[in-house]
Design a protein around this nucleic acid. Structure first.
Lengths: 175, 175
DNA sequence: GCGGTTGGTTCAATCACCGAACCGACCCTG
DNA sequence: CAGGGTCGGTTCGGTGATTGAACCAACCGC
């Protein structure tokens, strides 16, 4: 975020956070990372983001320690971007933001998030009402809801139709 | 948010939410509204936002039902912008975002948020650890922390140095 | 040798944001 | 009743970010 003026005058942790994740697309990239998207091309087709912007966001997110660039094969050299603890720590924010969007502007739920251990749907703060604990992100099970297009075009959306644990890499079933 | 391309392809409540509050400055305007800022000029000096951008944000936030424009005096005609339920519903998001910013990128806490009833500092989800309840926004007491500039320039920041309940209008002690 | 995949970079056009100036309605003061 | 101040904007030129399309390079499999 640097558009002539940043939020430096704001003495506020919210402003500090928005300096880093407040740019366009950035929070959606983090969301996808938590959903298990890891590769440049998968982010690209799933988000419909311009390539240059995606490259810039991945770079700043990596520089800020929110994603981690890791080589997963040597020949040809290929890197993937993994969600770090800082990205995982954004889960409550993303969860409450999504809940707000659905309750005030959405219709049918698009995705359900459950406690993988017991199947109970998460409460507003990511807690499991049945178990009385805050569910770790890796134990959150994501399932498609009724509002979701059952036959999306891109393979990443299609992979996300199947129930999956957050942070687990998507199995795109590439051909 | 309309820059040639919006987030319409995203079937996601987070994307829906970001369409509305994802633009630059928007979440800071909502934050200020929760802090008790109500007037155009107070937003202006506190945020340091360009006038045209502020006018645009206030208009869209009003149109989306997040703020409510209300006349508070007739002559000269003056309006104020009040936080609606939709703005209040963003409190968990702002709270967790601010917490994330402080824990990962901040140093000393800038503001404390306490349960007005018992004085206990709020937990990460806006709950009172002592009382075991989620504290309603109007019962949240905001107090300055050690990291805050003790003598800020603008009168709104100065007014926010005193402990105050969220949503209560700031007393700017205007001359 | 050829086409395909992956992960980018470059570039012109467009759009949003910035800062400063201007404006109109109203008030208060002398 | 003229002059200055406040409040809540609008207008406008300049700058910077975003976009979409094109290009590119390394490598693979055939």
């Amino acid at each position: 975020m640097a558009l002539g003026k940043d939020y430096v005058t704001q003495e506020c942790s919210i402003a500090r956070a928005l300096e880093i994740v407040g740019e366009r697309w950035t929070l959606l990239v983090v969301r996808d990372a938590l959903y298990g998207v890891r590769r440049y091309n998968d982010f690209l087709v799933h988000l419909g983001i311009p390539r240059a912007v995606l490259a810039a966001r991945l770079q700043t997110l990596t520089a800020e320690g929110i994603l981690e660039k890791r080589r997963y094969q040597e020949s040809p050299p290929r890197d993937e971007y993994l969600a770090t603890d800082r990205a995982v720590a954004l889960w409550p924010t993303l969860r409450s933001l999504g809940l707000w969007g659905r309750q005030h502007f959405g219709e049918a739920p698009l995705r359900y998030f459950r406690h993988a251990g017991c199947g109970t749907e998460l409460g507003p703060y990511g807690e499991c009402p049945a178990c009385g604990i805050v569910v770790p992100v890796k134990d959150v099970l994501m399932e498609p809801g009724p509002g979701l297009d059952p036959d999306p075009a891109d393979p990443v959306s299609r992979a996300l139709l199947r129930p999956k644990l957050l942070l687990r890499p998507i199995g795109t079933d590439r051909v």
